[in-house]
Computed example of a mutant assay.
Amino acid sequence: MAAADPVGELAVLWRAAATLDIDELSGRLVEVARAAGSLSELPLALTVRMYLLFFSGELTAATELIEDMEMTAAAIGSTQTPFGALGLAALQGHEDDVTVLVESTLREVTPRGEGIGITTTEWATAVLYGGLGRHDVAFAAAGQGAQHLDNLAMGPWCLVELIEAAARAGSQHRRAWPCGSSRR
């Protein structure tokens, strides 16, 4: 497979990923980081696990990991971007919390050029407003995030939110497709 064929490469990666038990793998990642005492790796492992739990609808278990992450950050004297709290607040429809978390996250990640952080705020905004029935706002936020499909952690999830917002917002949004050419 040539490096110039990103679609082919993605197909291979998705086939490989389909053979993995991502639930088991993410749990093992947290286990290994804890067992090794690797406090610098634990926040990333917790975040991966947390988002898997979000997408599985297991918000109570994800909340426990958010608390674990906050304690870990405090123990090592680090501040962590609040991706867990942001995702949870969006899924629970807490508009005020999401607004504050998006603003603080963008202040933190934008100067560093941290694309995943920016895309995560767009996903969270889309989820929040889609859940609150404000599909125009969800469409705009998801459209921004879906332009970054190369960010495999959150870009594709923005695309999912974009499709839902377009379907619920009406035909004018389907004609204004932000991901390349207009699609119908």
Rank of each mutant, 00 (worst) to 15 (best):
L13S: 06
D136H: 10
G170D: 03
H148C: 15
T110Y: 07
E64D: 03
T47N: 11
G133W: 02
Q144S: 13
E31L: 10
L59W: 15
V100E: 05
E161D: 06
A85D: 04
P6R: 06
C158N: 03
I116Y: 03
R28H: 13
M1S: 05
Q80W: 11
D21E: 13
L29W: 14
T121R: 04
P82M: 08
T121C: 02
S78F: 07
V12G: 06
I116H: 02
F55Q: 02
G93N: 03
Q92T: 13
L132H: 08
P111N: 01
A16T: 15
A2T: 15
P6L: 11
L13M: 11
A167F: 13
R28M: 12
L25V: 06
Q147I: 04
R175W: 15
G130D: 11
R28T: 06
M50P: 07
E58S: 09
I163W: 02
E31R: 09
R15A: 09
H173W: 07
V30T: 03
G84Q: 02
G87V: 05
T105S: 07
L65R: 04
G77S: 14
V160G: 10
L152N: 13
G8P: 00
A165L: 07
A141I: 03
G145Y: 05
G8L: 15
T60L: 06
D5L: 03
L101P: 03
G84I: 04
L88E: 03
S78G: 15
L44D: 15
G145I: 14
S182M: 12
I118H: 00
E24G: 06
V48N: 09
G84S: 01
L162H: 00
G8K: 02
E70C: 01
E58A: 06
R34I: 05
T79Y: 10
G93R: 08
C179N: 06
S104C: 11
L46M: 09
V160Y: 14
A153S: 08
G113P: 10
Q80E: 14
P43Y: 01
R134S: 08
L10V: 02
F55A: 07
M154P: 02
V98F: 05
V98E: 12
R174K: 10
